[in-house]
């Protein structure tokens, strides 16, 4: 997109980066939504949620390698993640719900170590890619001078649709009602005679499925590597801290905020610093500050609302 004027360029750039930020936001939301429900309902901190996202991407790559069909890759990613989530729940998580947070952290850390290495062993150390599906390839002109890839818009749309569905599900379905009740008062569930084991397995499986779906969506635009879940996990934590544990709405708001602040910060911090710093200093300070922005945002939110913006429980 050759820019015509300076201001035209920065406006276009701002629009592109805003879209990129929203798109990172919806991916984050898909990962954070499952995490926050698991926290809220089971008081269980699952570090292995990030590897679910990574495994989802690899399942998609494997599915595509077998079938050369994007929809089949999608089915592989979603069903594979669901199966993996249920398996982990059965073998490990279930034994950790009643244990200290420290035990939960360590046990799920062990799973990360294992699955990261498994992915490296099975799929190799070099990153894999998933092609953009035919129907969603190419770009469209959004406004003058702004060509934007269709696939990235599709991520945004898919993320928003899933967010809406999730909201409806949690708000109006029976399972959703139980999940909400569990998030605000876990003891109530067993008092009501609910099959807690099944509900917990369902929440974990569902969360794993969402994370796997996010992995699939991200695969065509990022390279698929064994450590891709590690960074995203911490971002998802920041989202949950900002949004508040157990809150889908909080996860949504937090995810978009983190996606936008991180993306826009990285692309504009240096330019903003150049307004009042020497270019060399700005080139150093800009990226450094940009990489801290979301954590500063988190600290700020925490200062005014220690249990997050929409937290159901105190910290």
């Amino acid at each position: 997109m050759p820019p015509e004027t300076q201001s035209g360029m920065s406006l276009t750039l701002a629009a592109v980066q805003t879209l990129n930020g929203l798109q990172l936001g919806v991916l984050l939301f898909l990962v954070a939504a499952g995490l926050t429900l698991v926290f809220g309902v089971m008081d269980f901190i699952n570090l292995a949620h990030g590897v679910q996202y990574m495994m989802g991407a690899y399942f998609a790559v494997a599915g595509y390698a077998l079938t050369s069909n994007f929809l089949a890759a999608l089915a592989f990613a979603v069903l594979g993640s669901l199966a993996l989530g249920l398996l982990l729940e059965r073998l490990v998580f279930r034994r950790l719900y009643r244990r200290s947070h420290l035990d939960q952290v360590l046990g799920t850390f062990g799973i990360i170590i294992f699955l990261n290495e498994l992915a490296r062993t099975v799929w190799g150390a070099t990153p894999r890619t998933l092609p953009v599906p035919e129907a969603l390839s190419g770009s469209i002109l959004l406004m003058d001078g702004l060509l934007y890839p269709v696939y990235r818009l599709a991520i945004l749309a898919a993320g928003l649709v899933v967010a809406a569905l999730l909201y409806v599900l949690v708000r109006w379905s029976r399972a959703g009602m139980l999940v909400r009740a569990g998030a605000s008062n876990p003891r109530m569930l067993s008092a009501l005679g609910i099959d807690v084991d099944r509900l917990f397995a369902g929440v974990v499986g569902f969360g794993a499925m969402l994370a796997g779906f996010a992995g699939l969506m991200a695969a065509p635009i990022l390279s698929v590597g064994s450590s891709m879940g590690d960074d995203l996990l911490v971002l998802a934590f920041v989202v949950i801290v900002i949004g508040g544990i157990g809150s889908i709405r909080g996860a949504f708001v937090g995810a978009l905020a983190v996606g936008l602040v991180d993306t826009l910060g990285r692309s504009f911090a240096t330019d903003i610093f150049k307004l009042f710093l020497a270019p060399a200093a700005a080139n150093e300070a800009g990226p450094a500050l940009a990489s801290m922005l979301i954590y500063i945002l988190m600290a700020g939110v925490l200062f005014f609302a220690p249990s997050g913006l929409f937290g159901a429980k105190t910290a």
Partner: peptide
């Protein structure tokens, strides 16, 4: 200022 899982997540962040 926080406890429990919040503390773990924030120190991680």
């Amino acid at each position: 200022r926080t406890r429990g899982v919040y503390f773990i997540m924030i120190t991680l962040a």
